[in-house]
Amino acid sequence: MEDQKPTSILVLDDEPIVCKRLKSALEKRGYEVEIFFRSSDAFKRITERNFDIVITDLKMEGLDGMAFLTEVKKRSPATEVIVITGFATMETAKESFQKGVFDFLAKPFKLGEIQDAVERAEKKIKGNIS
C-alpha cells in the first residue's frame, strides 16, 4: 500500500515563476508538490515531515540552498535532493556532489530535464524500498 502514495516533492526557489512552473508540471504527472519561496518556511516544513524528493535553488536570502541541502540530508538521508541553480560554479557543483545531491541542474533548463531527474530519483527511491 505504501507504493500507492504519490511521491512527495518539496520545491524551494525564491523565483515564484520557477516554483509555479514546476508545481504545475509535476502535479500533472501525479506528484504531490509543495512549493516555498523562502528557505526559512521550507526549513520549518522539513522539520514537520519528510519528503521523498527535494528540489532546491542554491542562491537565496537567509539560509542558502547548500545549507538547506545539508539539513535535508541530515534529517532524512533517504530524501533525494535535486539542486537547481542560476549561478553555477565549480565549487558549488562539487560541494553539492560531495553532500550527496542526486542531480545538479543549471538554469536554463527545459521542464523535461527536471521531470527526467525526478523520474530517476523516484526510481532510485522505489528501488531502495523493494
Partner: peptide, 13 residues
C-alpha cells in the same frame, strides 16, 4: 525570455 536571463547569469558567474 526567462531562459536568456538565466543564460546571462551563468555567463556572468
Amino acid at each position: 525570455s526567462q531562459e536568456s536571463l538565466e543564460l546571462i547569469n551563468q555567463m556572468v558567474t
